[in-house]
Simulated assay, not measured.
Amino acid sequence: MYKMLTAAALSIMLNRSLIIGQTRGKYPFGDYISYSNLTFTLKEIKHLWRKNNCVKKYKRQLVMRIDDFEKPAKTNALCSNWRDWDQPIIWFQGTTDAIGAQFFLKNVHSEMRSAAYELFGKPESLRSRPNIFGELMRVLISPSKDVEEAVNWVPDGVGEPDITLHMRMLMNRSVRVVQAALNCIRKAMHNLQLRSKPRVVVASDTQLKIFMPITHQFKTD
């Protein structure tokens, strides 16, 4: 999912269309989420390229340029102006987390930095950091009916939660993770001036038993 969000962010920065996968209907997590029709598949791009005779009209072959983010010596995220690239398709490979596109904030080319600033805000200014990936997720995907019903079931009858915390932990089981979650909740309580025991919903890709030692401090779900 973060790979798609990174690609979506990059498509906005470069003013290009977003391509997801080879064939529509075979997207990842298809049993749990639905995808918007704002994107293209590679199969659709090939069809449109032939239909509009782009090779003859624009003298451009449908080729792909790959940038490998996992190999620092082979990535141009920091030192190339991607807006000057002629290749119709760019594959930003190896971005396994949401930080991939944010590296363009450090690009040596002012044009790329400006495009990244417009999207992500300036890193040194906390007030200028918009919820980019949250908004991209809202536009690109929506939960399936079963998932939506499950999410709505949590606060059913007891009102909306005061704080919702999403922990993407993968295989991390460190005690420091729990402490970081606790600090995050406390900071939110302070900023929002909440009562001593706010209602907290924790969503995680890890079994929530790891959070049990801190649940007595909050009303948790």
Rank of each mutant, 00 (worst) to 15 (best):
K3T: 13
L5Y: 01
L5S: 03
A7D: 03
A8V: 02
S11F: 00
L14V: 02
L14W: 01
N15R: 09
S17G: 12
L18D: 01
I19Y: 00
I20G: 00
T23G: 06
K26S: 08
Y27H: 07
P28C: 05
F29T: 13
D31R: 06
I33A: 04
S36Y: 00
S36T: 00
N37V: 02
K43D: 10
E44H: 00
K46D: 02
W49S: 00
K51G: 02
R60D: 02
Q61E: 04
L62D: 00
D67G: 00
F69E: 09
F69D: 10
T75Q: 07
N76F: 13
C79M: 13
C79T: 14
S80E: 09
N81R: 06
W82A: 01
W85C: 08
Q87D: 13
Q87Y: 14
I90G: 13
I90R: 05
F92I: 05
T96C: 08
T96R: 13
A98T: 05
I99F: 08
G100W: 01
Q102P: 02
F104E: 12
F104H: 10
N107Y: 04
V108F: 04
V108C: 15
S110N: 06
R113D: 09
A116W: 04
L119F: 10
L126Q: 09
S128C: 07
S128H: 13
R129C: 15
F133E: 06
G134N: 03
L140A: 04
V154Y: 02
V154D: 03
D156G: 11
D156V: 04
E160I: 09
M167I: 06
R168T: 10
R173N: 11
V175E: 13
R176D: 15
V178Q: 08
A181H: 05
C184I: 13
K187Y: 06
M189Q: 09
M189W: 07
K197G: 11
V200D: 10
S204W: 01
S204V: 00
D205Q: 06
M212Q: 12
I214K: 03
T215C: 05
T220N: 12
D221V: 11
